[in-house]
């Protein structure tokens, strides 16, 4: 028996809404992606002629080259420092009970509620006091503070999914603490540590607001270089760079998914 007309109408309207929402979500990326191939020095849509010249510009523009190198340096340094620090704190918070536990945890997570420009401004003022405002140190420190909460949470979740009996079992079998750490604890925490590092890296590489305060001409990261670029030019170089960003991130996540499972990397799966 045929559905009543109102039912069919509702069904098709529902589909339309879903398609519209999904389309809307990727629309900006699609528009920018197409605009990147415009041959003219205009951010117009749709392009009249196609060209790869803006991609060439991305790779040859010196500030972007410097910004990319700086960004990579800051990202690797900051997320690695954050990983070690965050993992250590997560371990302490997971294994020990002490009076100020809540306070410590709260302080470590505080950057989540402090605006990035506040962190940037604060570090700028402090760095100026000790004449450090021109170096990489202050940039890296600011990034460490900003990404630490994400690393901390990620490792905390992995730790709480780790059965403490496993370490006891290993000890009972004659493994010294160092061996237990290397053969049991670390391998089981690895996906969590990696996901924490990856999140930190992506956040740090994209971080703009705080970086704007703490970077100089020599130490500016890619997002800051991009900002300075758009203040001067309004050509599709930005769009080309966006396409590269999207491709790079998607590749990274695909690789992570292939080798570790995205569920584990994003900590949405319980591994126990």
């Amino acid at each position: 028996m045929a559905q009543p007309r109102s039912g069919r109408l509702l069904f098709w309207c529902g589909r339309l809404v879903v398609v519209a929402v999904l389309g809307f979500m990727i629309l900006p990326a699609v528009v920018v992606g197409i605009a990147a191939f415009n041959a003219k020095a205009l951010l117009s849509f749709p392009p009249q002629q196609l060209s790869l010249r803006w991609f060439v510009n991305v790779f040859t523009y010196e500030d972007f080259q410097v910004g990319f190198r700086n960004g990579l340096l800051v990202t690797v340094a900051a997320s690695s420092i954050a990983l070690v620090t965050g993992a250590a704190f997560a371990f302490v918070l997971d294994r020990y009970t002490f009076n100020a536990k809540r306070v410590v945890e709260g302080l470590l997570l505080a950057p989540l509620v402090v605006p990035h420009f506040t962190v940037g401004l604060g570090f700028l003022i402090l760095a100026a006091q000790i004449d450090m405002s021109r170096g990489y140190g202050v940039v890296i420190l600011a990034h460490v503070v900003l990404v630490l909460p994400f690393v901390l949470r990620s490792v905390q979740i992995s730790l709480s999914n780790l059965n403490p009996k496993l370490e006891l079992a290993a000890a009972s079998l004659g493994a010294r603490p160092g061996r237990v750490l290397l053969t049991v604890t670390a391998p089981l925490l690895l996906p969590g540590l990696f996901s924490g590092w990856l999140f930190a890296a992506i956040l740090s590489f994209n971080e703009f607001t705080a970086s704007l305060f703490v970077t100089s001409q020599q130490t500016q990261t890619l997002p800051v270089a991009m900002y300075n670029y758009v203040r001067e030019y309004a050509d599709p170089t930005m769009a080309a760079l966006s396409v590269l960003y999207i491709v790079a991130t998607a590749t990274l996540l695909a690789v992570a998914n292939r080798y570790l499972g995205l569920g584990k990397v994003l900590n949405v799966e319980h591994t126990r």
């Binding site: 006891l168 000890a171 009972s172 004659g174």
Partner: peptide, 8 residues
């Protein structure tokens, strides 16, 4: 524990 030669 690791020097006690126990099984659990």
């Amino acid at each position: 524990t690791y020097e006690r030669e126990i099984g659990i």
